[in-house]
Design a protein around this nucleic acid. Sequence first.
DNA 1: CGAGCACTTGATCGCTTTCAATAGCTGTGG
DNA 2: CCACAGCTATTGAAAGCGATCAAGTGCTCG
Lengths: 247, 247
Amino acid sequence: MTLKAQFDHTNCGECPIRHRAVCAHCERDELEELEGIKYYRSFEAGQTIIWSGDPMNFVGSVVSGIASLTQTMEDGRTQMVGLLLPSDFVGRPGREIAPYDVVATTDLVMCCFRKKPFEEMMVTTPHIAQRLLQMTLDELDAAREWMLVLGRKTAREKIASLLSIIARRDASIHQSGMAGPIVFDLPLTREAMADYLGLTLETVSRQISALKKDQVITLEGKRHVTIPDMGRLMEEAGDDTDGGFLV
Amino acid sequence: MTLKAQFDHTNCGECPIRHRAVCAHCERDELEELEGIKYYRSFEAGQTIIWSGDPMNFVGSVVSGIASLTQTMEDGRTQMVGLLLPSDFVGRPGREIAPYDVVATTDLVMCCFRKKPFEEMMVTTPHIAQRLLQMTLDELDAAREWMLVLGRKTAREKIASLLSIIARRDASIHQSGMAGPIVFDLPLTREAMADYLGLTLETVSRQISALKKDQVITLEGKRHVTIPDMGRLMEEAGDDTDGGFLV
DNA sequence: CGAGCACTTGATCGCTTTCAATAGCTGTGG
DNA sequence: CCACAGCTATTGAAAGCGATCAAGTGCTCG
């Protein structure tokens, strides 16, 4: 059974991202209307989902897997400007042309909506527009967090910041607390990390080695990370360690 | 007459940002409701409007002047994460605590709404929520543009990028086309530019001098800039020069 | 006239990049 | 089964760009 078939005909009520995606606030009847315009698409790791400059004929949510938003300059320099996790939204109602490349970082399933009908629902269904506003504001906060990382942090702090973000996300998904060691797999290659952080992949590699040597992290293989002390990692990231979380 | 008094009792219909701010889509009766919860506040250049970590009891729009959103690390490194121009919105409905410092870069007037009533209107008045969504999506695009600048551009390209953004904004306000020389005053100190671009003020100064020497720009005094050839400036910024503007 | 501020310019330092070689892993085909 | 290509990642050496430290200019305002 393909990854796609696994979700085909899935009832929205049983959807794994039901309570976090753009449809989170929808009532039963609104969900039914959404079901009428939705379809699933799956992509393999490395595949480009949308090319910058191409017309967009759908919007949608990441159901499973990870995608990245990247900008590329003429001479090939690239910067990742967004990391799309399950429940994150792709596309902008009202926009015709995609401004960024969207690339599947891992195997990926998306729940797509045909753009025209979705835009009509945006007007008639405040629950969708309200949720999209919340999500966009969250993304804006995340983007501004990254501007500090990109503009002012050292290479070591950048790596520590990225690790702490991934660790926090994983902890929140697995409901494990912040005490005790945190274990996860890196969903990004060194190159993708470099593109996210505005570094070269060599610098990423060196700084990961340095954090390992200093026992801030432990590595098994290239991707499996253990964080023995989250507070220590956050110190290395240059973040406030006194646990002030934004709500 | 103070700057503030100049706007007091101003009818929304005569407001200079009426057609661009969060109230842009509102009907007459909705405007009247907004008038009931609005009040004006003015700030002097350099004054902090909101301190990061403080409770927010209002949201609002910049009516005139420029403000900046900045993040600061414990050791004093600061990064500007937003530049607020007339009609831009400050604050997030539903958020209690301000995540950034908001500082008046020039003398400034804000149209403020008490937070509670505004949040109630957000629910009952789709026109406001819809407009706020548009504006937030625009800000997200701008933030992502800046992530490329911060992560991948050289110091010279960063300066050229900032100048071209300011030039484009001025051209759009004054309805002057992109042909022929563009003239404007820099609304930012060298230090503020450095905070925006993730540079030191010394590097900003050096790169501006270099652009002047290479005749990409002309300076009269420290702030008055002339751009003889916008295409040339955009080349220096590393941007596509073939005029592809996002819509 | 002197203090204070914004800005410029010079000299040096150091972090990150660049260039380059190598290791480890996976899948393919002789 | 092994050789080899192709990819990801690590590590070393050298170079370059922007930061840092420092001095000085020009302007405004008391």
